[in-house]
Nucleic acid binder design. Structure first.
Lengths: 242, 242
DNA sequence: TAGATTGTTAATCGATTAACAATC
DNA sequence: TAGATTGTTAATCGATTAACAATC
């Protein structure tokens, strides 16, 4: 669903390179991880953190896969993109594996997130505990409505979207979440990109155009319901039940 | 990411069947549409509705594809799963195509959505205009907190989650959105399924287990940010810039 | 050593793309 | 008829799965 196709040329696979695996090293770092695998790695990471909270120290691919809702084959294949951090006959050390997946995903330092739009959704996101706990600091929230600017949301005060550029600069934000109406999303998006932020998560129900090199992801709640509707309809339809 | 693999056996493709295409007919209906295509059809639908609002009557695969951020090849392939509703040398009638995509997705009748969880996110969803305008009626919202039960949210009054089953029954809800903490998500999910609702959209950051035949989709905002983090990190990394 | 489980291979499956015959 | 654009094919590409050799 995104924009990486080219690359992937560099011959050398981990096969023919001499096995000089320094333990605790970079592993398979530097290689492209397939998009589908990246998405699942975040799931494994959450499952591992749950295990850690429960005090579990070791886990097999079989049980981690089950907790994550995938096959053990898929799990091991995905982990192979990160490196070789298991022990044959034994399994994976939970903490050790967790650390390496986090490193592969770029989660070793905190990311600073600015939210544009302090409506219901923007406020919900700003207060969402799940961000902080996973290394994402919400450092600013913006709105265009003068009645809302200056209000407190969580720990933050709502900034005027007119001050977008200086506030992004001052807070050092390196990710932006767009939680605003479709009509203004593209223009705000352009300003965010111009301000040098290249990672954007949009909740606006509109196709945003961004230049090459900008990472844009989109979450659309109505789309999700429509996809459910398709499957629900199929289930109802008489015809040959699958 | 979902649960349909089997099926897909029924030989006959639209090729060797005699071309008795009654106009305005069911088209390729009854056939499985690949998951990736279903997701994109919702995008085309939105683009078509935008065109309709602008008064545009006709569109080519080339320009609809551009508005949707896909290649025209992908677009035509996707539409072929729905049926043949274009005219060679001319293009597609916007309204006509829109109606047929909507029909294929099961959006011809309204769906009744209940939201469980009246926290920030639940309230944001309940008030989100994008649902109503696309055929999803929010018919109920629940919370477990007695301080919140009875409050007004949008047009609705918050019901006690203790009354989940009777209220789902009475309102005729056929979709449920879970906007509640990870800790209680599974148990509420089980009750929803037991109550006969088989289409669930979850915002809870946890892997839910559902029986065969239940359609579950998951949106996780922290996951989205983590995926962005991966790409951002790659872009920063020196190495060979792709 | 015997048992267990990883990491990798090769086969299968599905999705995307380019090209073009069909046809308005 | 000539020009345009669909719908479909076949080729390519990527993702998933099953199986097993490597090895703890």
């Amino acid at each position: 669903m995104d924009s990486q196709r080219d690359a992937m040329e560099q011959t050398v696979t981990s096969l023919d390179s001499p096995p000089q695996a320094v333990p605790g090293d970079t592993g398979a770092a530097g290689k492209q991880i397939p998009p589908a695998a990246v998405a699942r790695l975040t799931i494994y990471l959450r499952a591992l953190n749950t295990l850690m909270a429960e005090g579990t120290e070791r886990v097999s691919s079989e049980s981690l896969a089950e907790a994550s809702g995938v096959s053990s084959s898929t799990l091991r294949k995905d982990l192979s993109h990160v490196g070789s951090y298991g022990t044959r006959g034994v399994g994976y050390e939970v903490q050790y594996l967790s650390r390496h997946i986090a490193a592969a995903l770029g989660l070793t330092h905190d990311w600073k997130v600015a939210i544009v739009g302090a409506g219901n959704l923007g406020k919900a996101l700003a207060r969402y505990g799940g961000f902080e706990s996973r290394g994402f600091d919400v450092v600013a929230i913006f709105d265009a409505d003068q009645m809302v600017v200056g209000n407190e949301v969580g720990w933050l005060r709502v900034s005027d979207v007119a001050d977008l550029e200086p506030v992004l600069e001052r807070t050092g934000a390196n990710m932006v979440v767009l939680a605003l109406p479709a009509a203004v999303a593209q223009s705000v998006c352009d300003r965010v990109v111009a301000a040098g932020v290249h990672s954007i998560l949009s909740f606006a129900p509109v196709m945003l155009q961004v230049p090459e090199g900008v990472n844009l992801r989109k979450v659309d709640m109505a789309t999700e319901l429509q996809i459910l509707a398709y499957h629900a309809q199929r289930a109802q339809t008489p015809g040959q039940p699958e």
